[in-house]
């Protein structure tokens, strides 16, 4: 289904100037000296008695983009949620193993989930703006973190909306229009802006473009490439081209015989898409899966 060099069906020709450089030009590989931002070791997640994903071990280097790919239900969202302790909210969910942020155990008893979530932002699979004005949606995080200064808030709101490529569309009715009155794609960009506004160190994105049109998708992909300079990004996607375009490294998950998901292969994106080590990966990225 996907030949990476071929024309991308999602991209109208007129958008060509915006498109990513060809795969070969991507630097992909990350220097061995890059600091490890996120680290998971033998992480398994159980929902009740059932193991959803097992024995995931991976490193995410600082200032890089990692993509999670794999068939539906293999546990990509589940693993993603481990990195900001959102699995804590699911009754019956258990996280085993060790998860580190900057080398510190995220699940140590002394660590408050709130502290983690201020450093690690999450953009949900479904857009979920608050039923408030656009301004209040973006200002929500900073306000809760104690920012009261109007001028500073205005500044943060504008910067975040600009970064999320939404500013021009909403700047005239920031305070008048509800976040729910936006289109699905605009809502998703609003949710991204809302996450950027808390100035996290890590951004987790769960299929952020699944509700977006090709133009908005490209804007988000551009944004991801820019954000990489300051943030560490993990993105779940079902779109192979997107994984290839935006990520430095790609992790491929699949479902095992025991119906539990596991990490099959993790490597530089270029390698995963051109010369994967595992046959399962090869089959999946070349569309011969299942």
């Amino acid at each position: 289904m996907q030949t990476l060099e071929g024309p991308e069906p999602v991209t109208p020709a007129k958008l060509a100037p915006l498109a990513r450089p060809p795969l070969e030009a991507m630097s992909g590989a990350i220097g061995p000296d890059a600091a490890v931002k996120l680290h998971a070791e033998d992480v398994s997640v159980l929902y009740g008695e059932r193991v959803a994903v097992r024995d995931v071990t991976l490193d995410v280097p600082e200032h890089s983009v990692m993509a999670f790919i794999g068939p539906s239900g293999c546990g990509k969202s589940t693993v993603l949620r481990c990195f900001d302790r959102m699995n804590d909210l699911i009754p019956g969910a258990t996280v085993r193993g060790r998860v580190e942020l900057d080398g510190e155990d995220m699940y140590a008893p002394s660590v408050l989930p709130v502290e983690i979530r201020r450093k690690v932002g999450l953009v949900f699979q479904r857009p979920n703006p608050f039923p408030m004005s656009i301004y209040e949606n973006v200002a929500y995080g900073p306000r809760r973190h104690g920012q009261k200064d109007r001028a500073r808030l205005d500044e943060v709101v504008e910067r975040s909306l600009r970064q999320a490529a939404l500013w021009d569309e909403v700047k005239d009715d920031l305070r008048k229009k509800s976040g729910l009155a936006l289109s699905g794609g605009q809502q998703q960009r609003l949710c991204i802006a809302r996450t950027l506004a808390i100035d996290p160190e890590v951004i987790l994105m769960d299929e952020p473009c699944s509700a977006l049109d090709p133009i908005a998708t490209l804007k988000i992909e551009e944004l991801i490439s820019q954000l990489k300079a300051e943030y560490t990004i993990l993105i779940v996607t079902h779109n192979m081209q997107q994984a290839a375009r935006v990520s430095d490294r790609t992790a491929f998950f699949t479902l095992g015989e025991d119906r539990a998901g596991y990490l099959v292969e993790l490597d530089d994106t270029l390698k995963i898409f051109t010369n994967p080590a595992n046959q399962l990966t090869e089959d999946y990225v070349s569309g011969r899966f299942g």
Binding site: R117, N128, G141, R144, H145, R194
Partner: peptide
């Protein structure tokens, strides 16, 4: 109040009470 509302607020680093006060109660 939809669970999404709570999750969104908590994911932005709000405490439980902040979430109740600012995301749940308004709805």
């Amino acid at each position: 109040v939809p669970a999404d509302e709570r999750a969104a607020s908590l994911a932005l680093g709000s405490t439980k009470w902040q979430t109740i006060r600012h995301a749940v109660l308004p709805v």
